[in-house]
Amino acid sequence: MPRGEGFDLDMMQLVISGLANGSVYGLIALGFVLIYKATEAVNFAQGDFMMLGAFITIWLANPQFLGIDFWIAVPLAISIMAVLGYLLDLFVIRKMFGQPQIAVVILTIALGFIIRFVVGAIWKHEPQLLETPFAGRELRIGELVLGFEEVAVIVVTLLLTLFLFLFFRKAKLGKAMQAASQNQLAAYYVGIPVKRIQSLVWALAGAVAAVAGVLFASKGAVDPSTGLLGIKAFAAAVIGGFGSLPGALIGGLIIGLIEPFAAYALPAGYSQIAPYAVMLLVLIFRPAGIFSQMQKKKV
């Protein structure tokens, strides 16, 4: 990294690319949080959902496959992922009702294996890039040159988080989802269709994963093992506190920023440890994340 004149600009670019990566982590973490809030289980396959969403979009939009117009392919991919999420809950997750949360965790880990296997079998293991209409375009602000994709990723992520935040605060369905997550039995008694709500949450998580996948694949290649990125998103969710939507995004951005700066400041070998080390520290010292307070279970 050259120091001197271009230093501040380099820094700025480092920040932007960190934020762009962090946005993807944040979006995956958002998926964790959605499902955690609704079912108190964690979808360990959320990263693989993202990867699947990316591949479905690539399959729809890229010329070597179906070659549908980008602006049609993206909403289509998002809908497909939402339907998949819904069906997954309907046929698999719902059967886990009343089982310990760790069983759901193990189930979703297995699901991740299966998604990776299926995607690899269909679309092979070579890295693929999503061809977007704005590929290669640049954004110039003074001397600062930014990749259009990176800026788009950050903007879309912020908008999506804001939308979800408002959805849970204002919309009737969002409120019902919150109620169902806080007390299943009570929600059931006041007439909220708890099971269907739960399926809708999975659908929403699928859609969010698809958006993350589109964003990720537009700024870098994906292959079936890309889903393991989900583990970094855990770090994001943990830092943000597992129950908070804005927390997940902020956590993602923090991880996204830690990465390039750790690579900048630490010797090779140590830098990739940084996100996980931060996560472990947060887990040990602030187990409920840095934005919330943990309370003891009532006897």
Binding site: V92, Q99, A103, I106, L107, A110, F113, G120, A121
Partner: peptide, 22 residues
């Protein structure tokens, strides 16, 4: 030869067990 088939099948067996024989 399908790469990753072992973990795929393994995962499928596991899901079967969790759902039908926890």
């Amino acid at each position: 030869i399908i790469p990753g088939i072992e973990s795929g099948v393994f995962a499928l067996i596991l899901i079967g067990f969790i759902l039908f024989e926890p």
